[in-house]
């Protein structure tokens, strides 16, 4: 089944500590008045300008196998391949904050408001990432309701470009999902427009299927190590 979601501005909880952490700022840091002002302005600009949308389409394991194979460039061993076979439900997804926020960031930079542009970009990046969590939570609630509230069911998102799933995998994903319907396009180099967009697959199943050892060869150079937090949150 295919569905489109319009997120409200306050659906995305702008977790201040997490946003500051993404800028390399520790929670206990003392911030200047200027910083606080710029941060406050960025949050209210975000709330005014975000036009967040998402699209999902359920997909069978066998069909996803083909999508996942993509152009044959994935790492030979990777977590997604280990996980999706164990899933009870799969859905392709794409989410976006829309183009206006990035246009505003560019405008701020062009006007010399570098600090405000940087802050709005950072808040938007955080929010785009959160949208993929939100769309996974939506599916989790739907599936749990349908399966009379199974508490062990967990839905997590996985994206091309991460964890051994090659970024070129987005081409096949776009062919099947068609997120153009919510305004997301893919260029030849696999860059999505609007820039604040995320694509991938939602994998539903028992929480345990999402647990793995992050000791793949490519983990050595991974800068995000985002699997650690995701697995911690499963508990």
């Amino acid at each position: 089944m295919r569905s489109i979601v319009d997120f409200a501005a306050d659906d995305v909880i702008l977790d201040r500590a997490a946003i500051l952490c993404s800028q390399g700022i520790p929670e206990e840091a003392e911030l200047t008045e200027n910083f606080e002002r710029i941060y406050g302005e960025a949050i209210s600009l975000f709330q005014q300008l975000a036009a967040s949308k998402g699209i999902t389409a359920g997909i069978s394991i066998s069909h996803f196998e083909e999508v996942f194979r993509g152009e044959g460039l994935n790492e030979p061993e990777n977590p997604v391949e280990e996980i999706y076979g164990e899933s009870s439900h799969l859905a392709l997804f794409a989410v976006t904050l829309g183009p206006v926020l990035s246009e505003k960031v560019t405008e701020l930079f062009d006007n010399g408001d570098y600090a405000s542009g940087y802050m709005l970009d950072s808040v938007s990046s955080f929010a785009a990432d959160r949208l993929s969590v939100l769309i996974a939570q939506n599916l989790q609630s739907e599936l749990a309701a349908a399966e009379s509230g199974k508490s062990t069911l967990r839905v997590l998102s996985y994206s091309p470009g991460y964890c051994g799933w090659h970024i070129s995998g987005q081409r096949k994903l776009f062919e099947v999902l068609c997120p153009q319907e919510i305004g997301i396009t893919l260029n030849e180099s696999c860059l999505m427009s609007p820039i604040k967009s995320v694509s991938g697959v939602l994998i539903a199943g028992h929480g345990k299927i999402h647990e793995f050892a992050n000791s793949y060869p490519f983990c050595d150079t991974c800068r995000t190590k985002s699997c650690i937090g995701r697995m911690r949150d499963l508990k």
């Binding site: 390399g24 700022i25 840091a29 911030l31 200027n34 910083f35 941060y39 010399g112 570098y114 600090a115």
Partner: peptide
């Protein structure tokens, strides 16, 4: 003691 937005204000 300060962070990137403060540096960017100074740079402006």
């Amino acid at each position: 003691d300060i962070f990137l937005p403060d540096v960017l204000l100074a740079a402006r």
